[in-house]
Amino acid sequence: DEETLERIAKELKEKGWTLIVNGKLITDAREALKWLLEEEERR
C-alpha cells in the first residue's frame, strides 16, 4: 500500500541507497517511489 511505499522511499533516502531500474540508476527517493507506484499499477 501507499504508506508502505512511502516508508520504503524514506528509508532508501535515509540510507542513501540507489535503485537500479531497467539499467537506470535511481538515487532520488521520489523517483523510486514513482517507479514503485507504477509497478503496483501494472499488477
Rank of each mutant, 00 (worst) to 15 (best):
D1Q: 07
D1E: 10
D1G: 10
D1A: 11
D1T: 12
D1I: 14
D1P: 10
D1R: 11
D1Y: 14
E2P: 11
E2I: 12
E2H: 12
E2T: 10
E3D: 12
E3A: 13
E3S: 12
E3Q: 09
E3I: 14
E3R: 11
E3T: 11
E3H: 09
T4S: 06
T4E: 06
T4Y: 11
T4G: 04
T4R: 13
T4P: 04
T4L: 15
L5N: 02
L5P: 01
L5K: 03
L5C: 14
L5D: 02
L5Y: 08
L5E: 03
L5W: 13
E6H: 11
E6C: 15
E6G: 09
E6L: 13
E6M: 14
E6V: 11
E6Y: 11
R7V: 03
R7G: 03
R7D: 03
R7S: 04
R7N: 05
I8A: 04
I8W: 11
I8L: 12
I8D: 00
I8S: 01
I8M: 06
I8N: 01
I8E: 01
I8H: 02
I8Q: 02
A9E: 06
A9F: 15
A9S: 06
A9G: 03
A9W: 15
A9M: 15
A9I: 15
A9P: 01
K10T: 07
K10H: 08
K10Y: 06
E11I: 15
E11A: 14
E11D: 06
E11F: 15
E11S: 10
E11K: 14
L12F: 10
L12S: 01
L12G: 01
L12K: 01
K13R: 12
K13G: 11
K13W: 13
K13M: 14
K13P: 02
K13Y: 10
K13E: 13
E14K: 09
E14A: 08
E14M: 08
K15M: 10
K15E: 05
K15A: 06
K15H: 09
K15T: 04
K15S: 05
G16V: 12
G16P: 03
G16D: 02
G16I: 15
G16H: 07
W17M: 02
W17Y: 07
W17K: 00
W17P: 00
T18C: 15
T18E: 04
T18V: 14
T18N: 04
T18H: 05
T18S: 09
T18P: 03
T18F: 11
T18Y: 10
L19E: 00
L19P: 01
L19M: 05
I20M: 07
I20A: 02
I20Q: 01
I20C: 15
I20P: 01
I20N: 03
I20F: 10
V21A: 05
V21N: 02
V21Q: 02
V21Y: 06
V21L: 11
V21K: 03
V21H: 03
V21W: 12
V21M: 06
N22I: 15
N22T: 06
N22C: 15
N22D: 09
N22R: 06
N22W: 14
G23C: 15
G23L: 13
G23F: 14
G23W: 15
G23D: 04
G23V: 10
K24A: 09
K24W: 14
K24F: 12
K24V: 12
K24P: 02
K24C: 14
K24N: 05
K24I: 12
K24M: 09
K24H: 09
L25N: 03
L25Q: 06
L25M: 07
L25S: 03
L25R: 03
L25P: 05
I26A: 04
I26W: 13
I26V: 07
I26Y: 07
I26G: 01
I26R: 01
T27Q: 08
T27E: 08
T27G: 04
T27L: 10
T27M: 07
T27H: 09
D28H: 04
D28R: 14
D28E: 05
D28G: 07
D28L: 15
D28P: 03
D28Q: 05
A29F: 14
A29L: 13
A29Y: 12
A29T: 06
A29G: 02
A29R: 02
A29D: 02
R30M: 12
R30L: 13
R30Q: 08
R30A: 10
R30K: 09
R30N: 06
R30F: 13
R30E: 06
R30I: 13
E31N: 10
E31S: 08
E31L: 09
E31I: 09
E31Q: 10
A32S: 01
A32H: 02
A32D: 00
A32N: 00
L33V: 05
L33K: 00
L33T: 01
L33A: 10
K34F: 08
K34V: 06
K34S: 05
K34W: 07
K34D: 01
K34E: 06
K34H: 03
K34C: 14
W35D: 00
W35H: 03
W35F: 06
W35L: 04
W35I: 04
W35N: 00
L36A: 02
L37Y: 04
L37P: 00
L37W: 07
L37F: 07
L37K: 06
L37V: 04
L37T: 03
L37G: 02
E38K: 08
E38H: 08
E38L: 10
E38I: 08
E38F: 11
E38D: 06
E38A: 11
E39P: 05
E39G: 04
E39A: 09
E39T: 08
E39L: 13
E39D: 10
E40K: 07
E40A: 12
E40T: 10
E40C: 15
E40F: 15
E40W: 15
E40D: 07
E40S: 11
E41L: 13
E41I: 11
E41S: 10
E41W: 14
E41N: 10
E41F: 12
R42P: 03
R42G: 05
R42S: 05
R42A: 06
R42I: 06
R42Q: 05
R42E: 03
R43F: 09
R43S: 09
R43H: 07
